[in-house]
Simulated assay, not measured.
Amino acid sequence: MTLVAPALAKPIRKPRFSPYELTVFSVVAALVLLAAVGPFLAPGSIYTSNMLETLMPPSAGHWLGTDDQGRDIFWRLVAGSQLSLFATVLVVFLYSLIGIAVATIATVGPRWLDELLMRITDIGLSLPGLVVALGIATVLGPSLQSGIIALALTGWPMTARILRTTMRQTMEQPFVEGARILGVSRTRLMLKHVLPNSIDVLIVKWAGDISFTMLILAGLSFIGVGAQPPSPEWGAMISGARGYMSIAWWAVAAPGAAIVINAVAFALLADILQVRRDPSLQV
């Protein structure tokens, strides 16, 4: 009688990404792609008034209707995706640069400089950022550029505080101590070893900041200190259509929905990245 060894069960491989994660990644990628190519797809008529087609409801000819100037809302949303998303990313990029610079100087500099920069950071954190940004944008004059500058100047303190704390912890790691023993200069130590091994803590924050900043940037345009007509920036579109909401709800709902979709997509992306970075948070 021949004995046959039982076949070993193949281990079940867990998918690298769940369907939920793939869906969020796909939506975010589609939004970024739309922002990159949107202005090239939209016709030039999005800036031209057509008073014969004002406030038309959604139809086959105008998928999301028209605004008070007879301009196609769908194509204005497509063209405005670049302004809304890329302006938001630019804000996050600018205040991240400021925050990284402050945190690096505070960590590498003398004790008194660290204390001075952190006290300035604490003052920035204690101030109502939105109110300060509103004041700066008002002084600079109503424009999208003013909104970008205002938010960049008020958004850096949290980045500086988080990164400085992380860099201090990294400085205590054995590989940093080893590099110091080998005679690596303090500046090279910071730029080559400490900063690259600390900045990953900001990746999750960046995704969440894009979501929050898009809402704030649209809010500045809505109240008149951000992008101005005839810009297809989504907040400016809502501002221009708010007076017709009772008779042309689609003119407000369409750009509002675009802002919500983008904000929620990047907020979900931030949650996924946070769980990936710390699996103990997974439910």
Rank of each mutant, 00 (worst) to 15 (best):
236 A>P: 03
7 A>K: 11
18 S>T: 15
159 T>M: 14
38 G>I: 12
210 I>G: 09
220 L>P: 06
229 P>F: 02
86 F>T: 06
209 D>V: 05
22 L>A: 10
42 A>E: 10
61 G>R: 08
239 S>P: 05
281 L>V: 15
192 K>A: 15
92 V>S: 07
50 N>R: 15
195 L>Y: 03
90 L>G: 02
110 P>S: 12
134 L>W: 03
232 P>M: 09
106 A>T: 09
179 A>R: 12
167 M>V: 09
153 L>A: 11
143 S>V: 10
44 G>P: 04
256 G>H: 04
204 V>K: 07
225 V>E: 02
205 K>P: 04
128 P>R: 09
30 A>S: 15
274 Q>A: 15
215 L>Y: 05
228 Q>L: 01
228 Q>K: 00
239 S>A: 15
4 V>K: 14
169 Q>A: 15
263 A>R: 11
267 A>S: 15
154 T>G: 06
98 I>G: 08
211 S>T: 11
85 L>W: 11
131 V>N: 01
140 L>P: 00
91 V>F: 07
49 S>T: 15
117 L>D: 04
264 V>P: 06
142 P>N: 02
107 T>W: 00
117 L>S: 03
241 A>P: 09
227 A>K: 01
47 Y>W: 08
166 T>L: 05
262 N>R: 06
138 T>R: 01
2 T>Y: 12
11 P>Q: 12
51 M>E: 11
19 P>Q: 06
96 S>G: 14
119 R>M: 08
259 I>P: 10
84 S>G: 11
193 H>Y: 12
149 I>P: 00
234 W>R: 06
139 V>S: 02
268 L>H: 01
247 I>R: 13
113 L>K: 02
112 W>Q: 14
36 A>H: 05
8 L>E: 14
171 M>C: 13
176 V>F: 00
100 I>S: 01
191 L>K: 02
19 P>H: 03
204 V>C: 02
252 V>S: 02
161 R>K: 15
185 S>Y: 00
122 D>M: 07
116 L>E: 02
168 R>I: 11
149 I>L: 04
234 W>T: 09
20 Y>H: 09
233 E>T: 02
230 P>I: 03
200 D>N: 11
26 S>Y: 04
248 A>D: 10
31 L>G: 06
45 S>T: 15
58 P>L: 03
282 Q>E: 14
220 L>I: 03
154 T>L: 04
43 P>T: 12
145 Q>M: 12
153 L>W: 05
214 M>Y: 00
9 A>C: 02
40 F>K: 09
238 I>F: 01
75 W>C: 04
106 A>Y: 03
245 M>E: 06
168 R>P: 00
159 T>D: 04
148 I>R: 01
179 A>F: 04
226 G>W: 00
168 R>V: 07
10 K>Y: 08
251 A>T: 15
283 V>C: 00
31 L>T: 05
236 A>I: 06
36 A>I: 15
199 I>K: 02
220 L>Y: 01
172 E>N: 14
31 L>C: 05
110 P>A: 12
283 V>Q: 11
277 R>T: 13
